[in-house]
Structures are given as structure tokens and as C-alpha cells.
Simulated assay, not measured.
Amino acid sequence: MPQPLREAVIPELPNYYRGKVRENYDLPDGRRIIIATDRLSAFDRAIACIPFKGQVLTQTARFWFEQTGDICPNHVLDYPDPNVVVGRRLEILPVEMVVRGYLAGTTGTSVLTMYKQGKREMYGVRFPDGLHDNQALPQAIITPTSKAFDGGHDEPLSAGEIVRTGLLSQKQWDEVSAYALALFARGQETALRCGLILADTKYEFGIDRDGRILLADEIHTPDSSRYWFARSYDERFARGEKPESFDKDFVRNWVAARCDPYREPIPEIPADLIEETSQVYVRAFETITGQAFVPPADDEEPLPRIRKNLAKYF
């Protein structure tokens, strides 16, 4: 396997901020350089590096930003490197717009988890009795969350609560919810042509210097979205089985089976597991976009290449 991009610290660039998987630099003119590393984040920390992961996420988001630019303006200005996007620096809105087309999910804020607990009123939406795991909803719904409450943990909210508490104005809510539903509809339509079901996803929006709302971060990537294979969905659903998906959780599952990853050291992860996960990311890119994945040259290390491609920003 090629050398993964573990970090991208470039001293010549100003205002460095390290995220879980991305390195960020804020330029004085209002642009932000975002470098996607190959770090895999889980259990509140980076547990491994997956070759090509950063490139897959950046180039998948690029495909979708270009596919949806007629629906919603986005932050993108340039792609100087396969792992890098240069965008407008935004004031990120404090509400994450999660859009769901199916009764699915595993987290505490997912509609399936809460539905199984007996809840029928969620996110301001009334759900009927008798729904089954992974069943299509009558129509796509927005299940927004915010980390503004509960000590930084995702908190499920309704549209009324978002406006009432001042997280967003009514005008802002109307605009981002319309954008989110339109983006999701385009995503589902485009994915289905590639044999995929876009079951749910999340969007982040921000405000630029001119007060415009723009789509930020990433869109419809394997990390921000749940994709299922359409060809096997009906049969598996009828048997009560989980839909077939891009299984990227080999590393997470392997670690969780061998230690308490929140309290204990992470054991050394086998190379074949890393390689298998890398292949899944590449397969996801090619299936989602319909494009062939073009890896960097074998003799090209990622960080020197990125430094060279970003030299004009020094």
C-alpha cells in the first residue's frame, strides 16, 4: 500500500487548525485551505490511517458540489491538489441538517433508535405505527441536530425549537431546509442511476462575508452519508435483513472487539485490514461518481506533493 497522509502541517501557511481528519489554514483574504488527511476517526480519536481516504472524500465531495451547484451555492473556490479544497471561510450555522429517506440509523439521535424505544413524535414529525427497520419513509424528512446544548453532544431538535431558541432565524431555517431537501432529492436521483440508494445524509451550511448562506464542509461522501445497493434492497428488506452497503467499519469493529477503545490503548491494526478498508473507499468513489479513481504516482509522497501544489498560497 502507498504511504498514507497522516498529517499535513505546513509552517508556511497561517492560522493552522487541526481537526479530527482535516488540517485547516485560514488565509488573511478570507479563504480557507482544507486538507483531507487519511486519518480514520472513531471512538473520539484517530485510530488508523487509510491510504486514499482523504483523496476519496475530497474528490467525492467535488463530484457532488459540481452536480448540485445549480441548487445551492457552496464554499468551493479551487482544488489545487487531490486532497485539498480551497474555499470561502464561513461562519458555520449551529444546526446540522440531517435528511433521512428511510427509517434507519444506530445513534441515539437516529429515528430508528428512537422509534424502537416507542417514540412516535420526533423532530416535529409524527411517525405512524407499524414501520419496519430500514423501511422507506413516505417522504424525506429533516432531522436537525445541534451541539449548542447538552455539553456539546448532538441534540435532536424540531424546526420550531430551532427558531424559538434563536439558533436560526425563520428566514434562515426556511432557506437551509429548502436547500437540504433539494440537495437530497438530487442526491437520491443521481445515486439511483448508479445503482445506489442514498438513505440519509447530513449537510452543514455557513454564512459568508456578504451574508449569503453557502453549503460547506462535504456533501454525499461515504463518511457523511448512508448508501445502500439498490439491487438487493427489496429482497433483504423482505427478509428483515440489513441492506447491503459499503462496509467501511472493518477497522472500527476489529478494534471494538479487542479492547475498550474509549479507555484502553488501541492494539496494532493488521495491514490487510487497512488495505481492505482502503479498497472499500476506492470502490465507493467509483460507484458513487461513475468515475475511475486515479491514485497518485507510486513514487510521489503525499505531503511533499501537497506542499508543492500549495506553494502559491505561501
Rank of each mutant, 00 (worst) to 15 (best):
M1K: 09
M1V: 12
P4V: 08
L5H: 01
R6E: 07
P11Y: 06
E12S: 11
L13H: 01
L13D: 05
P14D: 04
N15R: 08
Y17K: 13
Y17W: 06
G19R: 00
E23A: 01
D26K: 11
G30C: 15
R31G: 01
R32F: 07
I35Q: 05
S41A: 14
S41D: 07
D44F: 10
D44Q: 11
R45L: 05
I47E: 05
A48T: 08
C49V: 13
C49N: 13
I50T: 02
I50N: 02
P51R: 13
K53N: 04
Q55M: 13
T60F: 01
W64R: 01
W64F: 06
E66Q: 13
E66H: 02
Q67K: 15
Q67N: 12
I71H: 10
I71G: 03
N74V: 02
N74I: 03
L77I: 13
D78L: 07
Y79G: 00
N83H: 15
V86R: 00
G87N: 02
L90E: 04
I92Y: 03
G101M: 07
Y102R: 09
L103S: 14
A104R: 03
A104Q: 10
G108R: 11
T113Q: 03
M114G: 02
Y115P: 08
Q117T: 04
K119E: 15
K119D: 11
E121R: 08
Y123Q: 06
Y123N: 04
Y123G: 12
Y123S: 05
Y123E: 12
G124Y: 10
G130P: 06
Q135V: 09
Q135C: 14
Q135T: 04
A136Q: 14
A136T: 01
L137R: 08
P138N: 08
P138M: 10
T145P: 05
A148S: 15
A148K: 14
G151H: 02
G152S: 08
E155K: 15
S158G: 14
G160L: 07
G160S: 11
E161L: 10
I162R: 05
V176F: 05
V176T: 09
S177W: 05
Y179M: 13
A180Y: 05
F184T: 13
E189A: 12
A191H: 04
L192T: 10
G195Y: 00
A199Q: 07
D200P: 10
D200K: 06
T201M: 04
Y203C: 09
Y203S: 04
E204L: 11
F205P: 03
G206W: 09
R212D: 15
P222C: 10
P222G: 07
D223Y: 14
D223N: 05
S225D: 10
F229P: 08
S232I: 04
R239T: 01
E241F: 03
E244W: 05
E244L: 14
S245P: 02
F246A: 12
K248H: 07
F250D: 05
V251C: 04
V255T: 06
A256L: 03
A256M: 08
A256V: 01
A257Q: 08
D260Q: 10
P261S: 02
Y262D: 03
R263G: 02
P265K: 03
L273N: 01
E275S: 14
S278Q: 12
S278E: 07
E286V: 04
T287K: 15
G290H: 06
V294M: 06
V294Q: 14
A297E: 15
A297F: 01
P304A: 08
I306E: 01
R307D: 00
